[in-house]
């Protein structure tokens, strides 16, 4: 499992020689690995009973693409065309752009409400699938997130799981220096969700926590995953600049080597 995450991160190092959001993608790799390889049941990307995943922080989509390719939903060579003219892989996900991408996102605060619609359909149709929505911590500044937070608990959607990639950083600075929301456990609880906090890079802890979903029958669940932005690249870890910077060509080898050694 850790090996899969390392492979994904190494791939991201090469992909991110162009474009931004390298750090945002590296931040969520372990969450995606655990969900796709241990938790979610997706026999095929169009199976009507599959578990659903929505990447609400769409700017980290390179990590999603790579996970889907590792999962075998499309050939890994397609990853080489990331951001290429005429290609399939935009810098924000497009529904159906490649198999497994469930929803088009990129503007923040949209995913939770789409997820609510999917979870509601499952509930009404008596289907067992769960809906996982991954958001950033900066994203929680969008009001539409809290419209959805209110709604999901009223609708008793215990098949809905929100995951917060709490890397404490956003576009300009640390989240706490821009719009402090570091008490967001209490906020989610006040909105009727059951909260669990985990180390967002600890596969065992993530897996055990996701297995406990729903944390309480009749309530939506939220996993606050404490993460490190740009996890796996020591000189970029925890730096908000990793939101923008591409990987310099002469650093690729070093970063890949460090990832191998860390493992």
């Amino acid at each position: 499992m850790e090996k899969i995450s390392t492979e994904i991160r190494k791939r991201l190092v090469t992909m991110h020689q162009t474009g931004s959001h390298f750090g945002s993608a590296m931040s969520i790799v372990d969450i995606l690995t655990v969900l796709y390889f241990k938790i979610m049941n997706i026999p095929s990307p169009d199976d009507p009973d599959r578990d659903r995943f929505i990447l609400s922080k769409g700017h980290a989509t390179s990590a999603w693409y790579t996970t889907l390719a590792k999962k075998g939903f499309f050939p890994e060579e397609i990853l080489d065309t990331y951001l290429d003219d005429g290609g399939q892989l935009y810098g924000h996900p497009v529904r159906g752009g490649v198999p497994g991408v469930e929803a088009s996102t990129g503007s923040l605060g949209h995913g939770i409400n789409i997820g609510i619609g999917m979870a509601l359909a499952a509930q009404n149709d008596g289907k067992d699938y769960k809906v996982y929505v991954l958001m950033g911590d900066g994203e929680l500044q969008e009001g539409s997130v809290w419209e959805g937070a209110m709604l999901a608990s009223r609708l008793k959607l215990d098949n809905l799981v929100a995951i917060i990639d709490a890397n404490k950083l956003q576009g300009f600075d640390r989240v706490e220096n821009i719009q402090p929301i570091n008490t967001f456990r209490g906020k989610w609880e006040a909105f009727g969700w059951i909260v669990k906090e985990v180390d967002g890079h600890d596969h065992g802890e993530l897996e055990a926590t996701f297995h406990e979903v729903p944390f309480k029958s009749g309530c939506p669940s939220v996993v606050i995953a404490h993460t490190i932005k740009c996890k796996g690249v020591p000189e970029m870890e925890n730096k908000f600049e990793s939101h923008y910077l591409s990987v310099p060509k002469d650093k690729v080898e070093q970063y890949v080597k460090e990832l191998d050694e860390e493992r």
Binding site: P48, E102, A103, N113, G117, M118, A121, G148, M150
Partner: peptide, 16 residues
């Protein structure tokens, strides 16, 4: 909550 309402309509439509 109109923003939520449109998102929910999308999620329902994506579920048939």
């Amino acid at each position: 909550s109109e923003a939520a309402m449109i998102g929910v309509s999308a999620g329902l439509a994506m579920s048939g």
